[in-house]
Amino acid sequence: MATPIPIIDSHIHLYPSSELTSLAWYTPSSPLANQRSVTEFKTAVTPANLASLSGFIFIETDRKNEESKDWTAPLEEVSWIRRVAGGDEPRPDEGHTAADAPLCLAVVPWAPLVLGAEQLEKYLVEVEAAAGPRVWPKVKGFRYLLQDKPNGTALGDGFIEGLKLLGRKGFVFDAGVDQHRRGRVQLEELVDMVDRAHDGVEREEEKVVFILNHLLKPDLTIVSQTDPTFIAWRTAMFTLSKCRQTYMKLSGCFAELPDSLKVRSAEDIFSAILPWLAVLVAAFGPARIMFGSDWPVCTVGVGEEAWQKWHKVVSMMCDMAGLDEDAQRMLWAGTARKAYNIDA
């Protein structure tokens, strides 16, 4: 290829050590219970790949919210990423500099969709104030994790109205479900949620765009493609891909692997997950697939070389699929720019 293909990492989490206790999942013994900021991220990418890195998309890190009733910590997270993405003078030891601001191409904060459209509208006003005029244009969408919520959460009337509000305002919704641990019901509800969110919305440009996280977290420990779990996942992938407002993140797979495979080579991991990757390419195609590392979650059980290892797995997938240069440019960066409406 004539020129290096630019990379946008469409899914990373950042947080300073000073705010660890505001994270809902935090425990002192967690392997992620240390600072994970821009400096650490750039180290993970390594100098060789940094030359191709156009930037990253910041995804909320699950701050405490008292079942969506207390917005203090999520808004503090917006203030934190404002200092990163806006080039503000960083606070001491937060792990970034003003020069890092251009790397943050888009911001996806948490949002209380479960509370319905009226409360969501109020929350968006507070996010805009916390982000400030320089960073608010980088807020391209919102996320409310469904993977650990009660069955039926995504199908409530308030939730659906919240999704429609995001669509009217031009925001995307990052959808995180977990087939591996929660089963088929999460896939079925996701399909139903997409249908309901678009039902009755006449203007295509007002239909909320869904960006599906981590291949829907399939169970990558199974070994047979005739397993009902694999068949249910494959069916959901092809069903969801029929909606043109859905995109898939090629990310998060390390967390779904058996521990024994996480420490193996990129080549071994690629071979093991090839059936899932083949379905992904067939269902969505490179124009609706985007590269993401899920850093730093990807390091758990894998090590600090996880970003490089996943980059290699995705590169092998591109070769396997016979993607030409234009298709690869979409997968590595172009799809993320399109889905998140990031200016070139």
Rank of each mutant, 00 (worst) to 15 (best):
L32H: 10
K122D: 12
K309S: 03
I57G: 01
N49F: 05
R82G: 01
S52I: 05
S30I: 06
W136N: 06
S37T: 15
R82I: 05
E202Q: 10
E118L: 14
R181E: 13
L20D: 01
G156N: 09
L103V: 10
K249D: 08
L115R: 01
R329N: 09
R329G: 06
G322F: 05
L280W: 04
W25N: 01
H198I: 09
P296C: 13
L20G: 02
A236S: 14
D195H: 15
L216Y: 07
K64Q: 12
E305F: 07
D324V: 10
L274I: 03
R63E: 06
W332F: 07
A101F: 02
D100T: 12
S315C: 05
V185Q: 13
L14W: 02
P4L: 13
G285T: 09
P4G: 11
I7D: 00
Q225A: 15
V279R: 11
R134G: 08
L145F: 11
G156L: 12
P275W: 02
I211N: 04
P150N: 12
I269P: 00
A101S: 03
D294E: 15
R337N: 06
S265C: 12
G158K: 01
M1L: 09
A33P: 01
T299I: 04
G162I: 01
V223H: 15
Q186I: 09
L75M: 06
E202L: 11
L32D: 09
L250F: 06
L323F: 01
S52Q: 13
W332S: 06
Q119H: 11
K64F: 10
F173R: 07
M237L: 14
I273T: 01
A321I: 07
C298W: 11
L105Y: 06
L257W: 04
P4C: 10
L187N: 07
A287M: 14
L187R: 02
T3N: 12
F56M: 12
G301R: 00
A283G: 06
L215G: 00
C243K: 14
Q308H: 14
C104I: 04
L331V: 09
V194C: 13
I81C: 14
P102L: 03
L103W: 00
K207H: 05
F254E: 00
L165W: 00
Y340V: 09
A255Y: 12
A321C: 12
L146S: 07
F142V: 10
P92T: 04
S10F: 02
E161H: 07
L113I: 08
R196G: 10
R196H: 07
T43R: 15
L115I: 07
G116I: 13
